[in-house]
Amino acid sequence: MGEQFVELILKLNGFVAIAAIGLIFVFLFKEGVQAFRTIPASHFIQTTEMDFDNTPQTVRMWQPVGTNPKYSLLPLFCGSMLVALPATLLATLFGVASGIYLAEVAGKRTREVVKPAIELVAGIPSVVIGFFCLAVLASLVQTAFQTTFRLNAVVGAIGVAFVIIPVIATMTDDALRAVPTHLREGAHALGANRWETIVRVVLPAGASGVTASILLGMGRALGETMIALMATGNAAQITANPFASVRTMTATIAAELGAVPQGGEQYRALFLVGSLLFSLTFLINLFAEIAVARMRKRLAL
């Protein structure tokens, strides 16, 4: 009797956990899809407007407040990419290098100090890094590159890189340490030195794991909110200039949701942005999971 009761309670908890997750999905998309009821789908790409001399103009702007609100998602997407891609690139350079260092080069003593240090970085709240970017890093970048705007995509990207370097470094370290030792011994026996062993044997064997770490890092970069909100300048525009002020999808939600009436057009549009963000990160994480599964299978052979 007691036995079954306990199982029932535990099972209920399991169900609540699933329900919570299902509800996120449902509530996000339920509100997001409703945006299409009042806004034509094409308006999320661009709108056509009459110029002052009555020539039609194609407008790609995110400008949800005003008499003639515009909801093009392109500037926001562009902003997210302009922050996430440089951040991922930077974090890949540093993260993979430190991951390899930890797994293949560092002695046991060094490892025991450096790895917890990196994990400690992973525990820094992102608002702290955002604040540091805003207060210190932005001025450094401005002096170094003579940029027009103090807060820009590069400042945000460096901050976001800080958040995802620990993710990439620890996962790369884990992936490379999962490569069996006898592969390394075989390479050494054939006369390869340590660097050749790393490049020709260990990295190819752990490649899927490293790829997965980079993908997961990129997912985190796309979803990072506070740094994007505090350090990128918050100007929704389509640009390829990394020193321009941009606004990411995450920052748009964070900056605007507080001021919109519930159930309005902009409220739904923000939920649509959220749904898009959810889908994007979901896809990226899915690819990462496939990469990990592939690596497990290969190493088991």
């Binding site: 996120i24 996000l28 995450t250 964070a254």
Partner: peptide, 21 residues
């Protein structure tokens, strides 16, 4: 599966969910 997916959801999406739900 759902737990793994939830772990990758951006934190601002949780904020949206919190307001909406």
């Amino acid at each position: 599966a759902s737990v793994n997916n939830l772990a990758g959801v951006p934190s601002i999406v949780f904020g949206l969910f919190g307001v909406g739900f």
